[in-house]
């Protein structure tokens, strides 16, 4: 098991290979469909949202206010990442992201940006909303809550030992590309 703590150095990211299991501690910023389109169109982030050497998490959590008025994440698995493919490479390059957490994998443009900028795609377990919510120790802040709505807002989350698998690395390797190729070839045998 490899431990990653944000902010993450390029060296640490370049050492990761497809298939590596990691546990992440530190800060994650959620960002999904609305955030990616917003940034692609030149939207400006609040100063507190510093993505450099950080990680964006494709996630629309369930967040409740407890009796003391504090936010608490009660469910927080990944959403399907491929929808961000038109935007992700630009955001990796422009904001200096070191990691993208999601599920289902991404395409060639994102893979190229990972190689160029020193970033990896980290696959969390889709649907595992409770196991992953338990890794969130604090909601540090929330941005665009009213404008984007709760699932699409940017939630700044402190996490401890958040589990994921490297499925796209910074050396041009992608588990998703490989599995698609082998499963296509396999299917051809049975048709």
């Amino acid at each position: 098991m490899i431990h990653l703590t944000t902010p993450i150095t390029e060296e640490k990211i370049r050492a990761l290979k497809v298939g590596d299991a990691v546990e992440i501690s530190g800060i994650l910023f959620t960002g999904r469909d609305v955030v990616h389109k917003f940034l692609h169109e030149g939207g400006v982030l609040p100063a507190e949202v510093n993505l450099r050497d950080g990680i964006i998490y494709h996630c629309g959590p369930v967040v409740m206010k407890d009796d003391a008025g504090q936010w608490k994440v009660t469910a927080a698995g990944p959403t399907t990442s491929i929808r961000e493919e038109p935007y992700q490479s630009q955001i990796i390059n422009d904001f200096g992201l070191r990691g993208v957490i999601g599920k289902g994998g991404m395409g060639d443009r994102t893979l190229e940006a990972c190689k160029k900028s020193g970033c990896v795609y980290l696959h969390a377990i889709g649907g595992a909303a409770q196991v992953l919510a338990e890794c969130i120790t604090e909601v540090k802040s929330v941005h665009f809550l009213t404008e984007f709505g709760s699932p699409e807002a940017i939630w700044e989350l402190r996490v401890k030992n958040f589990p994921a698998v490297v499925t796209m690395d910074s050396h041009g390797q992608s588990l998703h590309r490989d599995v698609f190729a082998t499963s296509s070839a396999e299917l051809a045998k049975y048709l």
Binding site: C59, G60, P61, V62, T74, A75, A76, G77, T79, I125, G126, G127, A128, A129, Q130, V131, A133, E134, P151
Partner: peptide, 17 residues
């Protein structure tokens, strides 16, 4: 593990309900 935890906590199995 997630299936057991969701039941125990009475919280959504998946955040996308």
């Amino acid at each position: 593990r997630n299936i057991a935890l969701a039941k125990k906590k009475s919280q959504p199995i998946c955040q996308d309900t």
